[in-house]
Design a protein around this nucleic acid. Structure first.
Lengths: 257, 257
DNA sequence: CGTTCGATTGACGTAGATCAAGTTACGTGG
DNA sequence: CCACGTAACTTGATCTACGTCAATCGAACG
């Protein structure tokens, strides 16, 4: 509940630095941005369809998801957000929200007022491009999910999603020794890939049997990144990562190959 | 091949006017934007995955689609574009393209150099917001397609897509007497909704049998917008249309109800 | 007036859904 | 720090929406 803690501003700075060198002025502008920190428990609503928010948020710790429901009550998870992501940046320009965002773990979010963000963008027009770019990358991920869910059979589809999570988590330093904490439950992964939880469980079992992943509890280990990537037909181009060091290969393989 | 023809600039002006009142200055800036017109036959590539375009385009006449392929050669159509849409505006900020765009009918496109567009946005910062918004609306459509293709059964899914096309075509004046020219073939609609062409055909047959649509050739007529909307679980919120007159109800029902 | 692309139809096959139990982990309060 | 309740994970048996394969038909166009 304070703006004194500068950790969130530093995460934001790092995010934008990934795109281009900030000037000292710009960096100071970001450091001065008031960010309100809020904590959430698992499965809490953050914003909802129909809301007209006057702020947007950034994930600092934990994970959130964007979802929509059909009339019959089926849920499609449209996006998973990890630290550094700004799940509802779109609300800056689309007044009424067409999505729901909820926490999927205990998590910490930083809230930035639209007015502050707009002010920052006016003062430093190059930052506008950086934030715009953030929304474009998320759009690109939506497209890849559309391809993935629409045209790939479930085994490949799920391997693909695991690859994406590995790469995105690795990009923010959350992969160690080829392992990461899976932020979503099997039921959530099922709602993201359009299969039933039962089927998700069977596919994960198969991936495990094939030696593509191993897990104790929510800690996933990827024995061979190359093999998983191949199984998931994964190419990270669509993530538009700029730091090629963090791009396709989680930590260990960077060192060994 | 000329920038003398001002029709494309007017379409662009109208598009942006839909969001907020332009100043005379801004309007003149847009009018002065060099736009190169090019014509395409059906099924021609416009841009492709891996390209680094230095321009982006706007559909003036006809229709285009964005798609991606899996390794096995299955195609997912990710978006359909009608006049007024800017299919690859994202290339302004994402250097290398992760999608393919092709014509799905004979069509006329207007090409704008990135440098010209960037110049315009620098001179009139409010226009930046307008273009950003265009990309956000497309992202919102991706999300709805993800929900539609992932969670709704094919009958509802296809009715939903037809609703979307009707509303979007109506918004640019291409619906008359509850009828419009379907811009896509059944095979293309199949690739957009993740079903086989055979199944698409059967669902369309069923929609026809149920009196939700009628068609001679590519001309689709919607006898009752209310019934189709209900069948497709359609709510146009996600299209973020501002002109509520063009929002949910194609022409005739606006007059009769 | 044949060629070609799109629409249509029938017979049959299957990936993944559904239903129905378990079983295992873990957070919480005593 | 243990017991207990709840959420997450597993597994087997059966079912179905949609896919696949294989023609045929119709209309636009050179």
């Amino acid at each position: 509940m304070s703006t004194v803690n500068h950790v969130p501003n530093q995460l934001l700075t790092r995010k934008l630095e990934a795109i281009f060198a900030l000037t000292d002025d710009e960096r100071q502008g970001i450091q001065g941005l008031p960010i309100q920190i809020k904590e959430f428990k698992t499965n809490q609503a953050i914003v909802q369809e129909g809301d007209c928010p006057s702020q947007c948020c950034m994930v600092l710790e934990g994970a959130t998801c964007t979802y929509k429901m059909t009339i019959e009550g089926k849920r499609q998870i449209l996006a998973l957000h990890v630290p550094g992501d700004m799940p509802d940046l779109q609300s800056l320009h689309l007044k009424v929200l067409d999505i729901n965002i909820a926490s999927i773990s205990t998590c910490k979010l930083g809230f930035i007022q639209h007015t502050d963000l707009r002010g920052l963008c006016e003062r430093y027009p190059r930052l506008t491009a950086a934030f715009w770019r953030e929304t474009l990358v998320h759009a690109s991920i939506f497209r890849e999910w559309l391809l993935n869910n629409g045209q790939r059979e479930s085994y490949i589809r799920i391997a693909h999603l695991i690859c994406e999570l590995a790469v995105r988590l690795n990009a923010v330093g959350l992969v160690q020794d080829d392992s990461f904490k899976m932020p979503a439950t099997q039921a959530e992964l099922a709602d993201a890939t359009g299969v039933t939880p039962v089927h998700m469980n069977r596919v994960i079992k198969a991936l495990r049997a094939d030696g593509l992943i191993s897990n104790k509890q929510s800690k996933i280990t990827i024995p061979s990144w190359e093999r998983l990537k191949e199984a998931g037909e994964f190419d990270s181009l669509y993530l538009h990562l700029l730091n090629k060091a963090t791009d396709p290969v989680p930590t260990s393989e960077k060192e060994y190959h």
